[in-house]
């Protein structure tokens, strides 16, 4: 029993000692780069030593760290130059892609300056719209029906037209209007409440008690299958 007590006391002193003493060593979270392990700082240091420790003394002195900094800058300049080069190439490609086809220029570029000025462009577009519409108006009715428009849409998917020609076909088939028009807006509201215009009986754009009741009654009927979508 005596031995046990002594052991307990010694153990108690052993753990309480450092806590009781006025000295308390505070651990550094990222103390020493020399620490082994997979700490990112230690890993990076190892890489830096392998590349930049010119005198191989296991220490990165001021000039060696300056070499690291200069190398970082060099790499950054390389990256930026690559981006600028790519941008220039993309711009060039874009310019080529956006240049009107020769056929268009021959027909509509009246002042032969290699581009369409305002008046020329309007005329060119209208002429091409008329040309494509008449080409696909198989029954010569003077207007394209949906079947005829569908052929244009099908061809648009199948062929790789020049941008200018594709644009005209999208206009004639109605795709251009749809892309720019109401369809997207209504799609963006998918899942949202109907705007309630049909129920806005006083036309003030605001929900009144009676209007809200009418909408809720209608929706209840809709869910029971007693009404159709408005």
């Amino acid at each position: 029993m005596k031995t046990n007590l002594l052991t307990l006391l010694l153990f108690g002193f052993a753990i309480a000692g450092p806590l009781n003493s006025s000295a308390q060593r505070r651990p550094l979270l990222f103390a020493n780069p020399e620490s082994p392990g997979s700490h990112p700082l230690a890993d990076v240091r190892k890489q830096m030593l392998a590349r930049f420790d010119v005198d191989q003394n296991g220490f990165l002195d001021k000039s060696e760290r300056e070499a690291i900094r200069m190398d970082t800058q060099k790499q950054a300049v390389k990256r930026s130059d690559a981006v600028l080069k790519r941008r220039r190439e993309d711009k060039q490609k874009g310019e080529e892609k956006n240049r009107p086809p020769q056929r268009w220029l021959k027909l509509y570029d009246e002042n032969k300056n290699g581009r369409f000025d305002d008046g020329e462009w309007d005329k060119a577009r209208q002429a091409e719209v008329d040309r494509v519409a008449s080409k696909y108006d198989k029954d010569k009715s003077g207007a394209l029906d949906q079947g005829e428009k569908n052929i244009i849409i099908k061809n648009l998917k199948r062929n790789s037209y020049h941008g200018y020609d594709a644009y005209i076909r999208r206009i004639v088939s109605g795709l251009e209007g749809e892309n720019r028009g109401e369809r997207k807006r209504s799609e963006s509201r998918k899942g949202q409440r109907p705007p309630g215009k049909a129920f806005d009986t006083d036309g003030d754009g605001k929900a009144s008690k009676d209007e809200l009741k009418a909408i809720r009654d209608y929706e209840a009927k809709l869910s029971r299958g007693e009404a159709h979508e408005q």
Partner: peptide, 23 residues
């Protein structure tokens, strides 16, 4: 640790550890 490593990798952190201390 990752940010420290990124900054060390740019050569802006000295390779001499700061003193350890005891209060």
């Amino acid at each position: 640790g990752i940010v420290l490593a990124q900054l060390f990798g740019q050569g802006v952190i000295p390779d001499v550890p700061a003193p350890a201390y005891t209060i």
